[in-house]
Structures are given as C-alpha cells and as structure tokens.
C-alpha cells in the first residue's frame, strides 16, 4: 500500500523546569492511502502528543528530537511556519475531542467554514460560502443555509462535530487526524458520526488517524491498530488479529476492560491496576513491568524491542520473543 503519512522512530521532548522529558519515544508507523489506523492507549500513553507532533502543534516547549514525520515523502519536521500553514488544514486536517470548544464562539459557522475554504482553495467569498453550504449538506445537516448564519452556542454537540468534520473535509485532505472525535458525544450520536466518517473516507479516499481509548470505536472503524503505552508503541496489528490474537499483556488488559452486556452477571469489570508511569520516572527495562501479571526478571533489566511476529503484527514484549531468543538477541537500547 502507498504510504501517505510516515512516522519514523519519532521521539518528542518537552523542556520543563527540571530538564527535558520525552513523553513519546520509539513511535514508528506508516499510514497507507485510504487506511484507518487507530491509536489506542490510556491517558498519558503519548497518543495525543504523537498527533500533535504530526500537526506541528507541540508549542514552544516541545519538539521532535529524533526521527522524522513525512507526508508523501515530504518531511514535515523541519518546515517553516509558513510552509506548515499551507499543509495544515489542506493536506492534513484535524477534528478535536470537544466540538463545543473547538469552534470560535463569536464567529458564525458560515464565517468559520468559508474562511478556511477561501484560504486553502483561493475561492471568492460567494463561492466559498456556497461550497461550505454544500459541505454542510454533505455531512448531513439539513438546514445548511440557516445553520451557516448560526453561532456555535446555538448548536448541539453532535451538530457541531458534523460542522467540524465539514471543515476538516472541505479541502479534501489526504490525512484526517481525529482526536477522540466521539468521546464527548451521546452514544446515539457517536454511531452517526462514526458512520459519517466512514462514508466520507470512502468517498474522498482519505486516510484517517484515529485516536481513541474506546475499543468499540476501534472495532467499528480501524483497519489497523497501534497500541501505545508509556510513550512507545507496544503492539501493532491488523484489527482482527489484534482482537483475536493479541500478544502483549497490556493489550489483553485493555480488551478485558470493555464492559459487555450479558456476560458474567455480577462479575466485576476487569481493570489494569496502577497507572502509566510519568516520563521522568520510566523504569529500566519494560515500561509495563510494574503492572504486568507475567513480569519476569528479564523485563526489569532489559528494554524489549518491537519485534515482528509475522504478517505485520509487531509486539514489544519479552514473552513473545522467548522462543526465538536464540536467533534474535539484542536490539535493546
């Protein structure tokens, strides 16, 4: 598959008062054309920072300190603000978690929608407005004409998320980054929004990078899944492979945390004890060691490499490497 977005060996560091910390390390994946990759993980696993680094939204304190990110072979990490502004919103768009706070409260929907179309597609005021209206209809808003004149406070969360999607898709981006697009919405609206995203993906051939911690959303949307823990990729696999044959204990834990209706009455919901260690307190060896049920001596001493377990299924765990240890030793930093 043709790679649209490549993220290679990326490390992100932030300057803090106590020196530099690296909330994201060893992140490595590529997004193919028309493909949907879901990045899952707990809070603090580095999934949001990864997307922010792709968009160049790390702020003054953060930077990509190792590795590179490229779009169609063009490296994004070293671009100037001006060049980046031509790509953002045009080639790569983003939808945010809370549509209520992601739209400017003092500007009308129409203003915000057509401003972006005018900027990136160089259309006149009238054409941009017409285009925006068509886009609103496309995302399933029936009263597009009157919605264009509304201010964001007058719309519900689901409607606003549709508007955000319309904005993100209006310049026909190659990559759409969706940072927990349905977390803030009602369950019924969630399904509608997910279906809409799927439709648009098929229609425009957009690649989607979906950030979520909801495994149901993953099952619904993703082609491939990347599981992140403690700022690094711990497992990457085809979505079916991941649900049925996951190898990493953390992935197992995540999947067991999904509440299911009807299974095991009165049974307590499984949880992974503890939380992700802070970047400045990362343990030596495997980052998951303190919460892992299968922890071995080796895990405490050596950092496991990301190994290919066949058919693009990659795992970062000593358990899966055990058998082949003789042939493939090393790779520890």
């Amino acid at each position: 598959m043709e790679a649209v977005l490549e993220v290679r060996q990326v490390q992100v560091t932030f300057k803090t008062e106590k020196g530099e910390i690296a909330p994201v390390e060893n992140v490595d994946f590529q997004l193919g054309k028309g493909e949907t990759i879901a990045i899952v993980g707990e809070s603090g696993s580095g999934k949001s920072v990864t997307t922010l680094s792709i968009m160049g939204l790390l702020g003054k304190a953060g930077r990509v300190s190792r590795g590179y990110i490229s779009l169609h072979g063009r490296e994004l990490t070293g671009l100037s603000a001006k060049e980046l502004n031509r790509i953002r919103g045009n080639d790569i768009s983003m939808i945010f978690q809370e549509p209520m706070s992601a739209l400017n409260p003092v500007l009308t929907i129409g203003h915000q929608l057509s401003e972006q179309i005018r900027k990136h597609r160089g259309l006149g005021r009238k054409e941009a407005r017409a285009e925006g209206e068509a886009m609103l209809r496309r995302v399933g808003i029936a009263r597009a004409e009157s919605i264009m004149r509304e201010y964001p406070f007058a719309l519900s969360g689901g409607m606003l998320q549709r508007v955000m999607i319309a904005m993100a898709m209006s310049c026909n981006p190659k990559v759409l980054i969706a940072d927990e697009p349905t977390t803030a919405l009602d369950v019924t609206i969630q399904a509608q929004i997910l279906r809409l995203m799927k439709e648009l993906k098929k229609e425009f051939g957009t690649s989607i990078l979906l950030i979520t911690h909801d495994m149901n959303v993953v099952a619904e949307m993703a082609d491939r899944v990347i599981v992140m823990y403690g700022g690094e990729v711990v497992e990457e696999a085809d979505v079916f492979q991941l649900f049925d044959h996951h190898r990493h204990p953390y992935t197992k834990g995540l999947l067991e945390c999904i509440p299911q209706i009807g299974s095991g009455k009165g049974e307590r919901l499984a949880a992974i004890p503890g939380s992700v260690p802070l970047p400045q307190h990362m343990p030596r060896g495997c980052r998951f060691q303190d919460r892992c049920a299968h922890v071995m001596d080796k895990c405490r001493e050596q950092h496991p490499p990301l190994k290919d377990a066949g058919k693009g299924h990659k795992v970062r765990c000593w358990l899966t490497c055990e058998g082949k240890e003789g042939e493939e030793n090393g790779g520890t930093p």
Partner: peptide, 26 residues
C-alpha cells in the same frame, strides 16, 4: 489557550490572522 485557537492553527491560519480575527473579537 482555548481549543478553537489550536483548531485554528491546525487549519493552517497564520498568527496575525488568528490573533486579530479569531482571538481579538473574544
């Protein structure tokens, strides 16, 4: 610090545009 400013950056708006057309009216 509001998210719509970040969204504006993500849409590729220049700093003066963000500052004077998006932040100032607020």
């Amino acid at each position: 610090e509001k998210e719509y400013v970040k969204a504006g950056i993500a849409l590729g708006y220049s700093t003066p545009r963000l500052l004077f057309l998006h932040i100032l009216p607020n």
